[in-house]
Amino acid sequence: MLVPTVTADAIAINSLYSITLFLAVVVFIIVQGLIIYAAVKFKRKHADEIPYQDHGNMKLELFWTVVPAFIVIMLFFLSANTLAQLSGTGTTASPINNVHKVGDENARRRIEEAKRTDVVIEVDGRQWFWQYKYIKEGVRHSSQDNGELIIPEGKTVRLDLQSRDVLHAWWVPSFGGNLYVNPGEMSYVWIDRPPKGYYIGQCNAYCGLQHAQMLSRVKVVSQVEYDTWVKLKKAEQGGVATENGDAQRGAQIYVDGGYKYADAIAKGDKNTGLQAQEIADLSAYINSLK
């Protein structure tokens, strides 16, 4: 695939893709080669030419039935094998469905046992944005106004997706795989230990007027930055204004111990000595990172 593949899932899909592409190119060259050769070589030479009346050849026909059959059956097993390597799919003998009805506790338990997860984020798909709710962290965020899904590097993140209106689909190509998000159902997507970076995905199930604008920007940051972001976000949601901050001043505050300040703010400590403007600056700096 032509996008950088950064998670174990994307890498597994990509290697299956590469094998298939190799075989496809071989078949492509053989077939196109035969077509072009035949079209050039066997042009009619004179008007009365009568070629040998060949009705077929059983052996040849068997050959091009059996060989492709062998190839596709091999690809079938390779696919099944890759499928079993992907996050949360279970084993081939006992596969797990990563979509279930809301409230189906058995299915939910299988999902939770399927893969060790560090961060769980509930994602609501709406016309035409995503709403993110960090469960443990107690933070809310959204993809509106170019909002990014902030996740820590090297951790396994699970998205618990649900639609609040029509069908949507979660797809960040670099993470591999997309999945429909249905009303009344839970869909699960894992982001397995992504490296730091900025990734863009997009809703991939047609959902109406502004379907094209329903982007999912994902920013993978270091653990420290992530924690800081969470704390600032909490502060923001606790009623402290963080808009209109100045990133440069924020950087200075951060160097002076922003992590500590942020921690205090998150605890609701009003006596950090920081002014509302300084909190806003700090926030602006964190947002400007990467």
């Binding site: 994307a10 299956l16 893709y17 690809l75 499928l83 689909a169 190509p173 795989g177 997309n178």
Partner: peptide, 15 residues
């Protein structure tokens, strides 16, 4: 054939 393979289709579906 690519799209018939579930893992590849999961990536390329609707693309």
């Amino acid at each position: 054939v690519f799209l018939g393979m579930i893992p590849i289709d999961q990536q390329l579906h609707n693309s």
